[in-house]
C-alpha cells in the first residue's frame, strides 16, 4: 500500500506562465512536474469531526526519498495511541507497510484495500498515496473561482485498475498550477471533497498548512493542521528500518 503522504505529494513549485490553450492533460502534467522535497519532517494535528464526536490525534511524519527513486515514510502517533506505521513505497509494486502497536507487537500490513479509512478519518489510504498521472484521463471542463482564486476545473476519469474513485474534479489554480480543491466521485456519486488552505512557501515549496477533507454533505470532516514542517533535512536511513520500530 502506498503511503506517500498526500500533502507532501501535492507540494508544488510555482511556475508562472501563460495558461491559455492548455488541455486538461497538459495542465496536470505541469502540476505533476513541480518539484518535490527529498525529505520532510513534520508534526501534524488531525481533528476528525463526526457528528457530535470530535476525535483529536497527533502524529509525527518523517519522509525520505532514496536514490533508487523510492520513498520511505514513518508515521508515529503520539495521541491517543502509540501506533507507528512504516511505509516503503516502491516504484513498480505495492508498498510495504509495518505496523507497531502500543504493546510493541509488530505486524506487516498486506492489505491492498485502498478504499479503507486511515485511522478512522475521512482520508482513505488512496488519498494518502502518490497519484500517478497516468491513472486518469483528463478533460478541461471550465474555469471556476475556488476559495477566492481563478482555477481550471479538470475532470479526471479513471482508466482501468483498482481505483477507489471513478472520477475526480480537480480545481487547479491558474497562477501556479497548485490544486486548491478536489471533488471525489465514487460509483457515479459525489462522495467527498478536499480543500487546501493556508498555503505557504517553505524553502520554496508551496505547502498547505491546513487540509480539510469533507464528506459530500459537508456535515463531517477531517482537518490536518501542520504544526511544523521542514523540508530537505538530513534524516538517518536507519530510522526507516523495520527493526527501529521495536
Amino acid at each position: 500500500m502506498k503511503l506517500k503522504f498526500f500533502m507532501i505529494s501535492m507540494v508544488v513549485l510555482f511556475i508562472s506562465q501563460t495558461c491559455f490553450g492548455l488541455t486538461g492533460r497538459e495542465i496536470m502534467e505541469k502540476n505533476d512536474a513541480l518539484k518535490k522535497p527529498d525529505s520532510a519532517k513534520s508534526v501534524v494535528y488531525m481533528t476528525i469531526n463526526k457528528g457530535k464526536r470530535i476525535m483529536k490525534k497527533e502524529f509525527g511524519l518523517t519522509m525520505k526519498k532514496f536514490k533508487n527513486g523510492e520513498d520511505k515514510a514513518l508515521i508515529a502517533f503520539n495521541k491517543p495511541t502509540k501506533i507507528k506505521l512504516l511505509t516503503h513505497a516502491h516504484k513498480n509494486r505495492d508498498d510495504d507497510q509495518w505496523l507497531r502497536l502500543s504493546s510493541g507487537k509488530l505486524k506487516r500490513i498486506a492489505s491492498s484495500d485502498k478504499g479503507k479509512a486511515f485511522v478512522n478519518s475521512h482520508f482513505y489510504y488512496e488519498d494518502m498515496s502518490s497519484r500517478d498521472i497516468d491513472d486518469y484521463e483528463y478533460t478541461l471542463v471550465s474555469s471556476e473561482n475556488i476559495l477566492g482564486a481563478d482555477c481550471f476545473k479538470i475532470d479526471a476519469f479513471k482508466k482501468k485498475g483498482k481505483k477507489v474513485y471513478d472520477k475526480l474534479s480537480l480545481f487547479v489554480r491558474k497562477t501556479d498550477f497548485f490544486i486548491l480543491k478536489i471533488d471525489f466521485y465514487k460509483k457515479g456519486r459525489f462522495h467527498k471533497y478536499l480543500e487546501n488552505y493556508d498555503i505557504k512557501a517553505v524553502k520554496g515549496i508551496l505547502t498547505p498548512f491546513k487540509i480539510v477533507m469533507y464528506t459530500a454533505d459537508g456535515k463531517a470532516s477531517t482537518h490536518l493542521n501542520i504544526k511544523s514542517i521542514n523540508y530537505n533535512i538530513k534524516i538517518k536511513k536507519s530510522k526507516f528500518n523495520k527493526e527501529a520500530l521495536r
Binding site: I48, K50, R53, M55, L101, S103, G115, K116, F118, N120
Partner: peptide, 15 residues
C-alpha cells in the same frame, strides 16, 4: 490500537 487499525468505513459520519 485494534480499533485504530480496524479502519472500516463510516459512511454516515457518526463517529
Amino acid at each position: 490500537d485494534y480499533l485504530e487499525i480496524f479502519s472500516g468505513d463510516d459512511n454516515n459520519s457518526d463517529g
